[in-house]
């Protein structure tokens, strides 16, 4: 091997990797994020599924009053907020990997990544607002649809 690059300008095998000087290695942090968030999500999502689908009446018991009862406790607000942020960013970053792998056109890549970023920002904002501005006992709602702790008007 006489030169480090061939006529196509491609580096020959085993030539030193050219690293961009300075700056944050975002791909490395993305790689670490997928693993760190993944471990936490296993606990959060298995807990979520167990409490909502295995305990009590399972899916039959899920209605407005059930969610109202859960979000009356800060514990579940924090649980769901962590799940929302960790899962959505984990999922969107995974989808970004798929776009990198399968979308061959630069414009297609940009459009898809733009759509991912838009969905993430919109849904993180919406979800977080819903968790912290939610009223389990809305005025005027039929009492039979609300949690038992709601004052009867």
């Amino acid at each position: 091997m006489s030169s480090t690059t061939d006529t196509l300008g491609l580096a020959s095998p085993r030539s030193p990797r050219s690293t961009p000087t300075g700056g944050v290695n975002w791909e490395k942090w993305g790689w670490i994020y997928m693993r760190a968030s993944g471990v936490i999500l296993v606990v959060l999502i298995f807990g979520h599924l167990f409490v909502n689908l295995m305990l009590g009446d399972g899916i039959k018991g899920i209605d407005f009053a059930f969610v109202g009862g859960k979000y009356a406790a800060p514990f579940w607000q924090i649980w769901d907020t962590a799940m929302l942020w960790l899962a959505l960013i984990h999922g969107a970053n995974g989808m970004r990997t798929l776009v990198n792998d399968y979308a061959t056109h630069v414009v297609t890549q940009r459009v898809l990544k733009g759509a991912l970023l838009f969905s993430v920002i919109t849904l993180l904002t919406l979800g977080t607002l819903v968790i912290y501005t939610f009223d389990p006992c809305p005025a005027g709602a039929p009492a039979n649809l609300l949690a038992s702790f709601c004052p009867v008007v």
């Binding site: 407005f64 969610v67 929302l84 919406l126 819903v130 039929p142």
Partner: peptide, 14 residues
């Protein structure tokens, strides 16, 4: 996320 957000709309919608 969207279906859960309906708790903010009304008990009936959710």
């Amino acid at each position: 996320i969207l279906d859960t957000a309906l708790i903010r709309v009304s008990p009936e919608a959710y």
